[in-house]
């Protein structure tokens, strides 16, 4: 999956590092990290075109859903796939996030060695759903 570009948004530095490392080590893609929603939207505004956005839910100032809304306002990113990453395991929370238009949810803690596979599976499921 060479050239697969991921924008990862998380306020926790360790998780940003872990996620970047995971994709690099497994060769599943290249990660561009953002420490906040504002930073992410700026990067997108400057012309970044990721294939996927991995979006943390609980962040100060601008939480995941708010970032999603901001992304969808950018004409170039109306359809960019977004996958939430959350520490909330409750079914209703997952359902809420899916209802916002995410293609999937990754529960923290996650296994970095299989994250790439997990994400790919979610994307495929999503495109299957869409083409169906």
């Amino acid at each position: 999956m060479a050239g697969f570009c991921i924008l990862h948004v998380d306020d926790d530095e360790n998780i940003r590092a872990l996620t970047a490392l995971a994709f690099t080590l497994t060769g599943d893609g290249e990660v561009r990290s953002a420490a906040s929603g504002v930073e992410a939207l700026e990067a997108l505004g400057e012309g970044l075109q990721p294939d996927l956005i991995l979006l943390d839910v609980m962040m100060p100032d601008m939480d995941g859903p708010a970032v999603l809304a901001g992304v969808r306002e950018l004409p170039a990113h109306r359809d960019t796939p977004i996958i939430f990453m959350t520490a909330q395991t409750q079914d209703h929370e997952v359902a809420r996030l899916m209802a916002l238009g995410a293609v999937g949810v990754v529960i923290k803690p996650f296994d970095p060695m299989t994250l790439g596979q997990q994400v790919r599976a979610l994307l495929e499921d999503h495109s299957d759903d869409r083409s169906a």
Binding site: D12, A87, F110
Partner: peptide, 24 residues
């Protein structure tokens, strides 16, 4: 509880995640 879950799981994500990378 929600916050605690988040606050505990976030560092745990690093602990488990980085140790998994080490193991690999």
């Amino acid at each position: 509880l929600s916050n605690m879950s988040h606050e505990l799981r976030t560092p745990l994500t690093s602990v488990i995640g980085f140790s998994r990378i080490l193991q690999a």
